[in-house]
Every structure is written in C-alpha cells, then in structure tokens.
Design a protein around this nucleic acid. Structure first.
Lengths: 243, 243
DNA sequence: TTTGGTTGTCTAGATAAATAGACAAATAAG
DNA sequence: CTTATTTGTCTATTTATCTAGACAACCAAA
C-alpha cells in the first residue's frame, strides 16, 4: 500500500475511498469482510476517523455495508459490459446482464452545426442539425448520458419518436434506415461535469468514459454523430470478442 | 456554469481546475486568453484566491501560463490518439503525432498464473507465466504503464529482449512470431493508483484509461494478455477509422 | 504620462478536514 | 456469562482550505 498525498485538493478520506474501491474490490470477493477499521487506518497511515469517512462514502455508493460488531463487507457489484464495435446495438449485447433498459429524451433542439459536428456528418459548415440529449438507464440505474446530432432535413421530428420508443435504432427505422454501422469510436475519460454528476447520480470527482462516434448507413453516408458519457464505475466498454 | 459542491472531499480549487481544464479547454483555442481571475471567480461563485489556486495547479500541469499584467493563456496541448484495433501496433499509428517513443522494462517475474490470466491465455490453471511491468513514453513524457503476461515456456527470457528493444512487436519476432492480431480489448476508467501516479507523473485524483487485451497469433493461439493504464489527460483511444 | 485592467502578494478570519483519545453498543466465541 | 473484537458516537485540538479586503507590480493603449 503506497503513500497518500496531502495538500493536493483531494481529501485524504477520498483518496482512501478510491484506494479501497479499486484495490480491495479486486482482491476480495462479494460478501467478504474487509480488514478492521483500525487495521486499515494503520495500513494507510491515517487516523481511524479518516478511514470511517471513506467507508461511509463507499456505503453511500452501495459498494460496502458496515455492521456494528461484525465488520464491513463488500457488496456484490459488477460493471455492465457495453459492446463497442461496428455493429453495436445497445439493446442487444446487454442481454443477460440486465433485466430492463430505458432511454429518456432530455431535450431536442435544432441548431446550426458546430464545426466538429458538420465535419463528422459531412455536411456543409453551419447546416441545421437536430441535437438530442438523452439519458439511458439499466434496471433503473442511470448509466449513460448522451448528446447526438443528426441532419435536420433528413430526420425532422426524430426526438418525438425517440421519446416514444427510447431507442435510436427504432427511431432511425421510421426514416427508412434499416441498417447502420458504427464507423468509428474515440474513447477518453474525464471527471464528470456537474451536469453529468446530476444526471447520472454521481458524486464529485467521479469519472465518466466519453465516447464520440459516427454511425453510417449502408452507403457509408453519415447518419448521426454522438457523444456519450458513461458512469465509469458502472460500465466497461468492450471492443471485439470476449477476452 | 453550474454549481460546485462542498463538503465532498474534493477541494473547491480542484473542482474549478477540473472545470477549466474541460470546458474552457474546449471553448478556447491555443494561446487564447482566459477570462480574468475576477471574472472566473464570479462565474464559478468562489473567491478569487480559489480560482488562483486552480490556475496555479493547471500551470503546473502545463496547460496554462499566467503573465502578470496581461492575463492567463492557454498552452498548446493535444491528446495523443492511440489506435486500438485488431492490428494495433503502438509504434505505428502514432506516426506524425510524436517524434520519439520508448519502452522501459520495470520488472520481470515468473509466477503462477492467476485465474484471470490463465483463462485469457487458455493455459491450465496455475501454469507458469512471465509477468512484465513496462512503462511507455512519447517524446519523453510517460503515457502508459502496462503489465503483460506471457506463457513462461514459450517466451523464456523475453524481458531481456524487451529491455533491449523497447518494443513488444520486436521481442515477439525473436520467438518466431511474425504477425499477431488483437483479439479483444476491454476499456474502463479509474482513479490512478498511487503507484501509477508515481510512474506516470500524475497528481492524485488523476484518471487512467485501463485496457485489458489479448493478442493472438495467426493460428488464433493466445500470445499475451496485457493490462495498460493510460494517463487519461494525455491520451485518447481510437477504435476504427478517423471520425 | 496617465489610465484601466490584469496578475502577484500579503494579512486576517471563517469553515472544513484530519488527528487523538475515550467509551458505548453490538457481535461472536469461549 | 465473560471476554475480545468490531463498528458507532462524542469531545477537543490541530492543520488545510476558503473567504475577504487591500495594495503592489506589470502591461497595453489612450
């Protein structure tokens, strides 16, 4: 166990929480008991109260449960495995991992395309595009917030259809798009913005996996450009077959 | 600009720094001037000194430079774009982005394979495997720390070869592996462990992109299983063609 | 040179986080 | 029932962080 750092803007209890979340999570199995608070305190070189603050935060996250007199235990939690590939369909690929999924439309706007968007969609600069903000949940827990841009001429009114179906695939089908593939995906990771913290129900300092992707139809014409933010503690992204 | 949160274990100045890094960075171009400290303070709803602490941290990260009497300016910094696909070769794909890259061997051990590793390499449980810890840098800046596992019988002494060449592709070639492909890659994001903070030269709370991948030879036989941690503020991962 | 706007530095006080110690309350084992 | 171990709660003190205000130093343009 390595040294924690001070005067760094990250409270010790939060550094301890991050450490426990990651190292203890990989060492222990579900329902195992953690070392006692006093033991953890000396192991991390901090006061027991600092460890308690960390544990309390992890309890709120649903990762641990503390029982007076018995100890602190690891809850059962697995990350959702999201497939990312040329034929990604969110609805499929999650089969077996969750019981239900839902997509909620947060907002729909028609705007002039920023450069990044017109480039991705191969539209003339400043073309009108539809901007959809959506939130996807699995088994009632928010897992990703997304922003999508589509050609306003071609997909007028798609927001209402998405709102009704909760699925992009279904919404595109109404416009005669029977099949599409993912042309490319870029992945990065950042601290969640305050807005995403709120949408995804995360606490500050939480991490989001950000994907930016372009979907194309059978003629390789760009259909939509999207940016999704996944709660990194609930999701991993999968490229290619099972490892 | 949204609300910052208090009593959350993340100092306000660090939340402000995270916000500036992400939102201001996307709005401004290289060498643009940031809003004045007083303006930022009122925009974020904090004291000017808090903003100054944030800016000072971003200066140390090399993102901003402050000049007395003139203002604070955005430095030129782009994330490295790492291709991830079935034919990933780190050395190629980075051409044009960097001038030099290097790989350093941190440690080599021969151990009994943990379950995760023997599964990935399709070896009997408990087989002997080589565990390599490596650090990759681009233009002198550390970008990723990796741990790789290989069949100890087949690749005896590969550590020394890697140490000499700094390249996995070159090392594998010595064992008659002329070509290999990436079977699968899983991506997740976490807070960096203290060890990775140290290796990658990051500050606490920093994020790493974690990939776990299996490489296979032409007969689809697993060659190596690896886990890489990329400094998320210096790298993005690219799947498929350019977006 | 003067003016307005900017970053840099200092002091002082208020709020949050971390340490230290003591003891209560629950649990499991002898 | 007794004992050892564990989490829960309380008080007090020290150390970081945040706020508030004032003014110096520097720059660019009038």
């Amino acid at each position: 166990m390595k040294t924690l750092q001070r005067r760094t803007g990250i409270a010790l209890w939060r550094q301890v929480a991050d450490q426990i979340r990651q190292s203890v999570l990989t060492d222990l199995a579900a329902n195992d008991r953690l070392p006692a608070e006093a033991e953890l305190a000396s192991r991390f070189g901090v006061n027991r109260h600092t460890v308690r603050a960390a544990i309390s935060a992890l309890e709120k996250e649903g990762i641990l449960r503390a029982e007076q007199g018995r100890g602190t235990f690891l809850n059962d939690r697995k990350r959702l495995r999201y497939p990312i590939g040329s034929r990604t369909r969110f609805s499929s690929g999650l089969a077996g991992q969750i019981r239900s999924r839902s997509g909620r439309l947060l907002s729909e706007q028609i705007i002039h395309a920023p450069k990044e968007v017109s480039d991705a969609l191969a539209l003339p600069p400043g073309s009108m595009v539809i901007r959809l903000a959506t939130l996807s949940s699995a088994d009632g827990v928010a897992v990703s917030a997304a922003t999508s841009w589509l050609d306003a001429g071609r997909f007028e009114g798609i927001g209402a259809i998405y709102a009704g179906t909760g699925s992009i695939t279904a919404a595109l089908a109404r416009y005669g798009v029977d099949d599409y593939t993912r042309q490319s995906t870029a992945v990065e990771a950042r601290h969640a913005s305050p807005e995403d913290l709120d949408l995804l129900g995360l606490s500050p300092g939480a991490i989001v996996l950000v994907t930016r992707s372009v979907d194309v139809d059978e003629q390789a014409r760009p259909l939509s450009y999207g940016q999704s933010r996944f709660a990194a503690d609930r999701v991993e992204l999968m490229i290619g077959g099972d490892p």
